[in-house]
Design a protein around this nucleic acid. Structure first.
Lengths: 233, 233
DNA sequence: AACACAAGTCAACGATTGATGACATAGGTC
DNA sequence: GACCTATGTCATCAATCGTTGACTTGTGTT
């Protein structure tokens, strides 16, 4: 009774060979065999572990253990560890809503994404999953493709103004840095300051990139002449 | 002759069990036994591999192979793989010069650091060495301590104005994001845009954090009333 | 109740890993 | 040239890794 995983509903809570509980066992109909349920549970556990410990720092047995299942199932369902990694890695369309948002709402959208709970279930940063797993070159390439499509192309097209692609990419950099700083490095002020205060400086940085200063050859840049400025509410 | 590593000067170029040449064999007096030389060469190879592949993605044999030396020497000189990692990980005082710089020169200093060659010898980002090696909790803690001391404390004290610590940390975030974006994700515009253009937007973001808008309770923030603005040349 | 197939387990493989201790050799000193 | 010590090598261990194929067990159907 104590060993058998299928006898009770709390079987998910077992496992966790390393340091931390997995927390994200997803929708798996308890005490009932379900291939799709196990698949999604494995995906969730894999996303968590790959994000937190990286590709090399995560073993297939760890992932399977989180779900309370034998490691062999990973190979039945996904073929290989690398295939599972490729399946769960990537930005996962979290930037898609941004593209359907009116341009004026972009600062708010970014602030909401950055200031919200780190991620549901204490999930690690999705970009970290790739950053922590070099050289999974394929994953890095796909991450670059994701960023390029969303920011350099689609968002840039909607921003307009000079250097729209560069500004969009710097916006992504500003987001990435703030997000990593907040969720991983966790310096004291960023962790303790009231959200409204952080958001104010955050928004100021976003505005700078959304409302570019006009091109200036001799170095003296002034603000807000060209480029349709937005979100000055 | 072909196998013996000490017979010629180019022995460093051998090794490199994985994908990429190490490039950083540092100062090791060729064809002469030197403990200190081997130590520093091991340190350099370790810093490179840990930064590029992370802690778990790097084997002791890889590091020793880069230097052209047996893996056992790593244990003689550093005790363990983890001790070697702790020895070479960290920001390595690259932010120290910032603290000796006059405040007005900070934007220039940041721009120079960010826009310069990624790192000498194609070296990976020092923060990545830690970010890619979770959960080396000790290294993460030291990285946080580094950032806290340099930015949240010493730099913040010199910045002055409201939320100086928070602004300094956000400055670090802005740097981190831009740096990671440039060196790892490498989106197209950021890679191809002329340095002067990138620098202009970069500086605008820095200025926003160095010259804070005054605290404002009802949300309407104006620029440049309080807080000694600098670097407006 | 018997059957059949899907879902999950088990034992084992070859390779690689971090780590250790016994051994070999270079190079300066007398 | 003999010798000694620092320096580097070698063989090897136990543990863990990704992966595989044969096996067991649950569950819905007839």
């Amino acid at each position: 009774m104590a060993e058998g995983p299928w006898t009770t509903e709390v079987r998910y809570v077992t496992g966790a060979h390393k340091s931390e509980a997995p927390k994200a066992e997803a929708c798996r109909p308890a005490h009932k065999r379900s291939a799709s349920g196990t698949r999604t549970a494995l995906r969730a556990a894999a996303a968590f572990r790959f994000g937190k410990y990286g590709y090399e720092g995560t073993s297939v047995r760890d992932i399977a253990g989180d779900v309370g299942v034998d490691a062999a199932l990973v190979y039945r369902y996904f073929g290989s560890k690398e295939a599972l990694f490729n399946d769960v890695s990537g930005t996962g369309k979290i930037f898609e809503p941004l593209l359907n948002e009116p341009v004026e709402a972009i600062p708010d959208w970014f602030c909401a994404l950055l200031m919200g709970p780190p991620r549901e279930g204490d999930f690690p940063h999705p970009v970290l999953s790739v950053l922590r797993s070099s050289g999974r070159d394929e994953a890095v390439a796909r991450l670059r493709a994701d960023f390029t499509e969303v920011f350099s192309q689609r968002l840039a097209a909607r921003l307009g103004g000079p250097d729209a692609d560069l500004r969009a990419e710097l916006l992504a950099a500003w987001m990435l840095g703030t997000s990593l700083m907040r969720s991983e490095i966790r310096p004291p002020a960023l962790a303790s300051a009231p959200d409204a205060t952080v958001e104010r400086y955050l928004r100021a940085g976003i505005d700078v990139l959304l409302c570019p200063a006009p091109e200036d050859t001799d170095g003296t840049a002034r603000a807000g002449d060209e480029g349709h400025c937005i979100g000055d509410n």
